[in-house]
């Protein structure tokens, strides 16, 4: 039982770290307030699910309706999920990132997140509507004893997390990352020295979409389930809280934020007995606390627990 709890915790931690690293690239480094981040995770999850599930005519699956059902072998569904996240970023970025002022971008993405959820909930034949997809096959489950499968999945998640972290650190420290920061700090100045802000934003939006899609694939393979109720727009706000608490623009901060907010916070509040007050009081208060965390940090410590390092040129005159 305890090892089950630990496995659960580690896998969620991995998925949250991956998501926070991606959001940090978009929000922390490039300054894009992607309020529809969870939609990219959801697209990855749905894609991974329908690529790995058998067709909806299969005997055990006939209670749900969905497109696809290709039964492709593992890594392909996860890779497909990542690609789907990246592909979705292209049209969304095309509409949102080209002409709009940055606060309009934020509200457009927020509205997209609400609407995408409404559409998927109401259009049942596409991805089984509000009930969602169940019995998503766990990757390579037949190769392992069910007792040890959890450890294998932790390993798989850890490898993906490490790969994503490597990519994120390389991007932040590359000339491209430097250009993104320049654009975030002063878009007009970056444009004046010949950088194309739309191309820069589009690239990081797609990269973030790919990583978000991968995180969705990992999550749905583990919980073997995906439905509109798990990707409501407030889920994105938790990730924003994590990045703001951890430290915008700092990869280590994003990792720390992922461990503190979605993982730590959920675990701590798990120990509050849910019998206090009317039903739904404790979950509602958790959301209130997330809001307070964001406002509190933006007021008292906007740079987060681990602030972005100030990058100074060593040879600069005083």
């Amino acid at each position: 039982m305890n090892s089950y709890y630990a496995i659960n915790l580690l896998i969620y931690a991995g998925v949250d770290i991956i998501a926070c690293l991606a959001l940090n690239l978009q929000f922390g480094v490039a300054g894009i307030v992607n309020f529809s981040f969870i939609v990219f995770q959801a697209v990855g999850a749905y894609t991974a699910a329908v690529l790995s599930m058998p067709p909806d005519t299969a005997p055990d699956y006939s209670f749900q309706i969905y497109v696809g059902g290709l039964q492709l072998p593992f890594p392909i569904p996860w890779i497909g999920g990542a690609i789907a996240g990246g592909l979705l970023a292209v049209p969304v970025g095309f509409v949102v990132l080209r002409k709009l002022r940055s606060d309009y971008q934020a509200i457009a993405l927020l509205v997209l997140s609400v609407i995408a959820n409404t559409v998927i909930t109401n259009a049942r034949p596409f991805l089984n509507g509000a009930a969602g997809l169940a019995l998503v096959p766990a990757p390579l489950a037949d190769l392992f004893d069910p007792a040890t499968y959890g450890y294998f999945y932790v390993g798989l998640t850890a490898i993906c997390t490490a790969l994503v972290a490597l990519v994120a650190f390389r991007i932040v420290n590359s000339p491209y990352g430097r250009t993104l920061r320049a654009m975030r700090e002063h878009e007009v100045a970056a444009t004046a020295i010949g950088k194309n802000p739309v191309a820069l934003k589009m690239t990081i939006f797609i990269v973030g979409g790919v990583i978000a899609g991968l995180s969705g694939g990992i999550l749905t393979g583990y919980i073997t389930f995906w439905a509109p109720s798990v990707w409501l727009y407030p889920e994105t706000i938790i990730l924003f809280a994590a990045v703001i608490v951890g430290g915008r623009g700092n990869n280590l901060g994003a990792v720390l934020g992922a461990l503190l907010v979605p993982v730590g916070f959920e675990e701590v509040t798990r120990f509050i007995p849910s019998s206090i007050g009317p039903p739904g009081l404790i979950p509602a208060l958790q959301w209130v606390a997330i809001g307070l965390l964001i406002i509190g940090f933006l007021w008292f410590r906007p740079e987060g627990v681990r602030p972005e390092p100030r990058r100074v040129f060593e040879g600069a005159p005083d």
């Binding site: 606060d103 009317p278 739904g280 509602a284 997330i290 809001g291």
Partner: peptide
């Protein structure tokens, strides 16, 4: 001196808190 974007995040956090304070 919070930026426009910061203000959008603050108002979204307020919206989330209001909805969940009302709910119980």
């Amino acid at each position: 001196g919070t930026s426009y974007l910061g203000m959008v995040i603050v108002s979204l956090a307020i919206s989330l808190m209001m909805a969940n304070l009302l709910l119980p």
